[in-house]
Design a protein around this nucleic acid. Structure first.
Lengths: 146, 146
DNA sequence: TACATACCGGACAAATTTGTCCTTTAATTT
DNA sequence: AAATTAAAGGACAAATTTGTCCGGTATGTA
């Protein structure tokens, strides 16, 4: 569905959000450990998110990553996905036709349309803050325990 | 959504189906030209589909690819996708958790479930023959004209 | 039987994605 | 101010996906 980078990015953002909601700023090492992702690769992805201002970072001792109250409230899953994977998967043709549209639809065009619309709607409807709360309440997990 | 290989594979299968429905067997060169795909790469993908018996091939002069009436009637989009991309995208967790399930769901688990179910249903519901007819009737396209 | 045709299969190459390492930059603490 | 901490950024490496090339194999035709 999404790229690895995107999966890590979303998990990281939610974890940062969860901690930010409790007033804690978190470092890269902590993040990678908590979401079970490769540290250096996760750093790259977070850099992207910081550049896009979807996540906030602070350098130096006591530094780390955090989400402002506004970011918690307004940044959606969709913004993360677009920032990391680009819009292609949320718009492009399922069969890869470059100009697929009602004008010259691929054979699956009208069947896929509602599903893609729902996916877009879904991603737009959920903020990082909301997902972070879910994790905080033990209703969702960012890595698996045994 | 799907890999390039999968996109080419689906388009190729539908084109072969369209021609088979009219009693024509088609060669690789023809296929690649009609669906606008790299020839040698398309050959690899078709080999896979032939091995899985989703497509039939005949060697030698007058040879080529075709779909038997049974293949036209029974092979679904889902079988093509699984043969080429594997089942991961049709089952795996959206956030990449290896063991995501109701037991330890990711924060988006229950939101994604209905969408993934619909996608599976959609892929299962459409046969190559059906999609080939759509193209034959001019209601769907496998490449774009200008 | 010889030849031509067209798929098969393996090796190879390019491009992209995933992942690592190390130096630089910024900020806090002593 | 110096030392320490942690993110930023660039270069590099591994893995996967995408794509090519070419000799081998099967099949139909003369």
């Amino acid at each position: 569905m999404f790229s690895k980078a995107c999966e890590y990015g979303i998990r990281a953002a939610i974890y940062i959000g969860q901690q930010s909601a409790s007033g804690r700023r978190v470092g890269l090492k902590d993040i990678a450990a908590e979401i079970d992702s490769p540290e250096a690769f996760t750093a790259k992805i977070l850099q992207q998110l910081v550049r896009e201002q979807l996540v906030t970072s602070v350098k130096g001792p006591t530094g780390g990553f955090e989400l402002t109250p506004e970011q918690l409230r307004t940044v959606t899953l969709r913004q993360l996905v677009v920032a990391i994977d680009g819009g292609a998967m949320l718009q492009g043709c399922a069969l890869g036709l470059p100009q697929c549209s009602a004008k010259q639809p691929c054979p699956m065009h009208y069947q896929f349309l509602p599903i893609r619309d729902q996916l877009n709607e879904l991603l737009r409807a959920h903020t990082i803050g909301e997902l972070a709360s879910k994790v905080q309440e033990g209703l969702g997990f960012l890595k698996q325990f045994s």
